[in-house]
Simulated assay, not measured.
Amino acid sequence: MTATATAPLVALLAILVFVLVRAGELRIWQVVLVGLFGFYLDRTHLADPIASAVTWLVAGLTHT
């Protein structure tokens, strides 16, 4: 993902994480969402494969 596409994704994930934490309950898919947010913020060595997987998934869902 480019920097222009990553910034809005991080902002969206930040809003979703904030809402989920405020709700007080986290389900499995929500924990995965929070984990993805953490990887995008931290940019660890696992961030590139995760970013590639997310890009592949989004491209597959949007047919681009």
Rank of each mutant, 00 (worst) to 15 (best):
L36W: 03
A11E: 07
L13P: 05
L13H: 04
A14S: 12
V31G: 11
V17Y: 01
H45D: 05
L26T: 10
L12Q: 07
V34L: 05
V32M: 03
T2N: 06
P49H: 07
T44H: 11
F39Q: 12
T64S: 07
I50Y: 10
W29Q: 09
G38A: 11
A14L: 01
H45T: 07
F37M: 15
T62S: 01
L20G: 07
I50S: 08
V21R: 02
A59C: 06
R22N: 04
L57Q: 05
L36G: 10
G35H: 05
A5T: 13
S52V: 12
V54K: 05
P8S: 07
H45V: 09
P8G: 05
A47Y: 13
I50L: 13
A5D: 12
W29V: 13
L61N: 09
F39E: 14
E25P: 02
A11L: 05
R43W: 03
R43N: 12
A23N: 12
A3M: 07
L20H: 00
R22P: 02
L13N: 07
R43G: 06
V31I: 15
L13C: 08
A59H: 01
I15G: 07
L33S: 02
A14D: 09
R22I: 09
T55A: 13
R27E: 06
V19L: 13
V19S: 07
G38M: 08
E25V: 11
V32P: 02
V34Y: 00
V10G: 01
V10C: 03
V21F: 04
T64L: 10
H45W: 13
W56D: 15
A23K: 11
A11P: 01
A51T: 14
D42I: 04
A47V: 09
M1K: 09
R27H: 10
G24V: 06
W56I: 14
L57H: 04
D48Q: 11
T55N: 04
L33P: 00
I50E: 04
L46T: 14
L9P: 06
L33W: 00
R27Q: 14
A53V: 15
A53W: 08
Y40S: 04
L61R: 04
T4H: 06
V21S: 01
L13Y: 08
L13E: 02
L41K: 10
V19M: 12
Q30Y: 09
F39K: 13
A59R: 14
L61P: 07
R27T: 10
G24L: 10
V21K: 01
D42V: 09
L41I: 02
P8L: 00
L61M: 15
H45S: 14
W56K: 15
L16P: 00
A7G: 07
L41F: 04
G38R: 02
V32Q: 05
T6Y: 12
L46R: 14
L33H: 00
I15Q: 08
L41T: 03
P49M: 06
L16Y: 00
V17T: 09
L16S: 00
G60Y: 10
T4L: 12
L26G: 08
R22D: 11
G38I: 12
D42C: 01
L9Q: 03
